[in-house]
Design a binder for these strands. Structure first.
Lengths: 229, 229
DNA sequence: CAATGGTTGTAAAGTTTCTGTAAAGCCCTG
DNA sequence: CAGGGCTTTACAGAAACTTTACAACCATTG
């Protein structure tokens, strides 16, 4: 059954929700703040997150946005305190899939969770495929020739970028602008990209010194070739 | 609208798929085995093929390989029986663009078909053509008489310049100002341009010593003539 | 008609720039 | 403070660019 991560700073609410969700047949994990949430997510990706808007060490919306930025696209249901319209709009804009206004009936939450899971399981388009490589974006899992491969966040983003722009030549400028958004500055002469390419090759190529997927276009950039049509 | 050819030996599946795809606005043709598939393809090339892996008179992958061998490069979506070994084999062997695991939701298949068509139809834009030469700019790929040709950055820029100014005589001054922007100085007596022309000719001309595309205009420069039909 | 000078084709050598790679340092988190 | 991930650095080798030298060609000229 599906694993639900519930994040709220009120232990009473957590207790009630956990009980109700388990009755409904879900596996339940809990966290009380942003730090714990990340900690959990780094270990195991749940199928859905129930997220309180206000957390002691941060904002639920920021957390949600950050999830999306890292290509973690599992559904998020927000718990908002008041039902001010602005909160709803903000919640949905931040990438949440649904929201429930406190105080709420546990039954309603369960129903929304089920609906959300049903909806998103159909949209399983989050699977990217290129030749012998299969990327399950929500689970952040990559298989190459059937074998599981663990990628770091940067490597994962890089691979997604390549697959979404298959066959096109990506300049280093383009890659830099895609993976190092505004806040993180990166000197134009930095060789980080090349190094990440090196790491990615060593993980997905059969013979990294004779790459079949990530091809170097000297003087320009790199090209991802899923097959040899 | 796009024409989809669905190949499956189960008439029930065919019926369901046909109905769903037509609702989605596609024109649908069906076949139940390899023989029928080839028969159809010889009459009319569809925009996309949905192909069952197991067919009564052959293997979907073989059919797919055969398509590629005949340079029919329309997208193929495979229907595979189960996850597991099959997708490893798929990845290794066939030239399919995507696959869907049975049993599947019709919605997912439609979504994948749309994604696939969107990808491949966008690709046919941004293309330059000149006689037997096809240049795909974002992919930086050049085909001459159907064969792939690798160009260095300077050669590529030079070729694009020629194609964009076809039939016109380009002086060396003009070429120098176009490819060597201000920062890079280039002595007026340098012969670099001639050397690059030489390299380009050796890659795109059938007989480099009797060029048909890049014609020398003595005392002036060069002219690109794609005219031969 | 042969000599001359200017222009282009061509191959090869010289030079510069770019890339692969390993190793080391940094920074954050647990 | 240990470990993992990210970034920098340094250097060797590869690729591309440029120069150079010479042959071929053509037109003009003495």
């Amino acid at each position: 059954m599906a694993l639900i991560l519930v994040v709220d700073d009120d232990p009473d609410i957590l207790k009630v929700l956990k009980a109700n969700l388990e009755i409904a047949g879900f596996e339940v994990a809990t966290a009380t703040n942003c730090a714990e949430t990340w900690q959990f997510i780094n270990k195991r990706i749940p199928d859905l997150i129930v997220l309180d808007l206000m957390l002691p060490d941060g904002d639920g919306m920021d957390l949600c946005r950050e999830l999306r930025k890292r290509h973690i696209s599992i559904p998020v249901i927000m718990l908002t305190a008041r039902d001010g319209i602005s909160d709803r709009v903000l919640g949905l804009e931040s990438g949440a899939d649904d929201y429930v206004v406190k105080p709420f009936e546990a039954i309603e939450l369960v129903a929304r969770i089920k609906a959300c899971l049903r909806r998103t399981s159909l949209e399983s388009l989050e699977r990217l495929r290129a030749g012998e490589i299969v990327v399950d974006v929500p689970k952040r899992m990559v298989r190459v020739r059937g074998k599981r491969v663990d990628l770091t966040p940067k490597e994962f983003e890089l691979l997604c970028l390549f697959i979404n722009h298959r066959e096109k030549v990506l300049t280093r400028d383009f890659i830099r602008n895609s993976l190092w958004k505004d806040n993180k500055k990166l000197y134009s002469w930095s060789r980080v990209i090349d190094v990440h390419i090196q790491h990615l090759r060593s993980k997905i190529e059969k013979d990294p010194s004779n790459p079949k997927y990530i091809i170097t276009i000297p003087g320009v950039g790199y090209r991802f070739m899923p097959s040899k049509r």
